[in-house]
Simulated assay, not measured.
Amino acid sequence: MTDTQKIALVTGASRGLGAALALELSKTHHVVAVARTTGALEELDDKIKAAGGAATLAPMDITNKDAMAHLCRSIHDRWGPIDVWAHTAIYGPALMPTPDLDDKGWTQALNTNVEATRNLIFMVNALMTDDSTALFFADDHAGQKFFAGYGATKAAQMALVRSWAAENTKLGPRIVIAEPEPLATTMRTRFFPGEDRSKLAAAEDEARRILSDAELT
């Protein structure tokens, strides 16, 4: 990468919308791609290289606070400020009646969707300037039957983000909340197993639309 190339951090970059955003951003940015699955990150890296871009792979769990703090410090020491942060990492526990929501699924959803987001906002904010953009994604299922685990934790995540956005209206960084069309992702297949996937949006198309709407392309 050149000294003047922009830096984009994508958390949850291994598949779905995160991978599509990383690939699209790599046309204009050096991408730092974070996800737990090393193999999927390597596949993304191959696509980015084939398209003429470059990425730094960070195979780690965003719920590991120490690992994420080390990554953010490394980004600061190597590149300084970042220009874009796209946060797509999410966990959807199995759908079930609210009284049956188990500790394991609830805890993982809470740690991934809420606590990790809170920690990352604190850490990544220090890497951003007033001209940087943080990009988040609404997916409202709060109050829908069988969605207690995902709906509650996703709503809490969005409450954090919307407060941060309201606080930054006159300063920066810029906080953008996008609303993707229903996507043909693995998580959606688990939520809606009988759905006609041919009617769902492609992640690549949505990535281009979202980045264009956010004036990031």
Rank of each mutant, 00 (worst) to 15 (best):
H87M: 11
E167F: 09
L9Y: 13
L171H: 15
A8C: 05
T153E: 04
A142R: 11
T107E: 04
A8Y: 05
A54F: 06
A201R: 10
L95K: 15
A67H: 02
K65W: 00
A126G: 10
A203Q: 11
V176R: 06
N111H: 03
I48F: 03
G39S: 14
F146C: 11
R118F: 14
A8S: 07
G194S: 03
S14K: 12
L211H: 04
A165T: 10
T2W: 02
G151P: 05
L171Q: 13
A184F: 00
T169C: 10
L171V: 14
A214N: 12
S212G: 11
N64Q: 01
Y91S: 00
L95R: 15
D205K: 15
R36K: 02
K145G: 09
I48T: 05
E24L: 09
L200K: 00
A40R: 14
T38F: 09
T107D: 04
T2N: 11
P193K: 03
A69L: 03
K6L: 12
L41G: 08
S14H: 12
E43Q: 11
G149A: 04
T185C: 04
K47F: 02
L95M: 15
P81Q: 06
A35Y: 05
F191W: 07
R188G: 02
L23M: 10
R208K: 15
G80C: 03
F146A: 10
D45R: 10
D66F: 13
A33C: 06
K154F: 02
A152F: 10
M158S: 08
E167L: 08
A94F: 07
T28F: 02
H29K: 04
R208T: 15
V161A: 13
T98N: 08
E43R: 10
A22D: 10
A40E: 14
D66I: 13
M68F: 08
D103L: 08
T28L: 03
A152E: 06
F137T: 07
T28N: 06
F192A: 05
S74K: 13
N119F: 13
N119R: 07
S198W: 03
T112C: 00
D103T: 09
S132N: 10
H29Q: 04
G18E: 02
M96T: 14
P59I: 08
A134N: 11
H70F: 11
T63Y: 00
G39V: 12
D205L: 14
G172S: 09
